[in-house]
Amino acid sequence: MEKYLKYTIYINLIIAILSTYMAFNFWETDRNRAYIFIFLAVITAFMFFFRRHYYKKFEERKKNNK
C-alpha cells in the first residue's frame, strides 16, 4: 500500500500542470473557466508540496525507528 502512496503524490503535480495548461487555453475565450482552472492548479500544487513534505517526514521517522 505504501508503494501506491508514494506515486499518488505525483498525481497532484500532473493535475496542477494540466490545470495550468487548460487555464492558458481558456484565457481568451472564457475567463471564468480559466480562473477556475488557475484555482485548481494552485490548490493541487499546494497539496503536492504538502503531501511530499509529510511523506518524507514519515519516511525519515520510519527509518529512525528501525
Rank of each mutant, 00 (worst) to 15 (best):
N25H: 12
I9S: 12
Y21Q: 04
N64E: 12
E2W: 15
R52F: 12
W27R: 06
F46H: 09
W27C: 00
R52T: 07
Y10D: 04
R51C: 05
A23F: 04
T29I: 03
V42H: 05
A45M: 10
V42S: 12
K62Q: 11
I38A: 09
K66S: 07
I17N: 04
E28K: 14
F39A: 13
M47W: 07
K56W: 08
A23H: 01
E2G: 15
Y4H: 05
D30I: 03
Y7E: 11
I43N: 01
F50L: 08
A16C: 09
F48I: 08
K3R: 08
I17E: 01
R31E: 15
Y4A: 01
T29S: 02
R33Y: 02
A34C: 06
L18N: 09
N64C: 01
K62R: 11
Y55P: 00
E60P: 01
A16P: 06
Y7S: 07
T8N: 09
W27F: 14
Y10V: 02
L5F: 07
F49R: 03
R31W: 11
M47K: 09
W27I: 02
A34Q: 05
F37L: 15
Y10S: 04
H53K: 14
K66M: 09
S19T: 01
N25R: 10
F50P: 00
W27H: 11
E59L: 13
Y7W: 13
F48G: 03
M22T: 13
D30Q: 04
E28P: 01
Y35T: 05
F37Y: 15
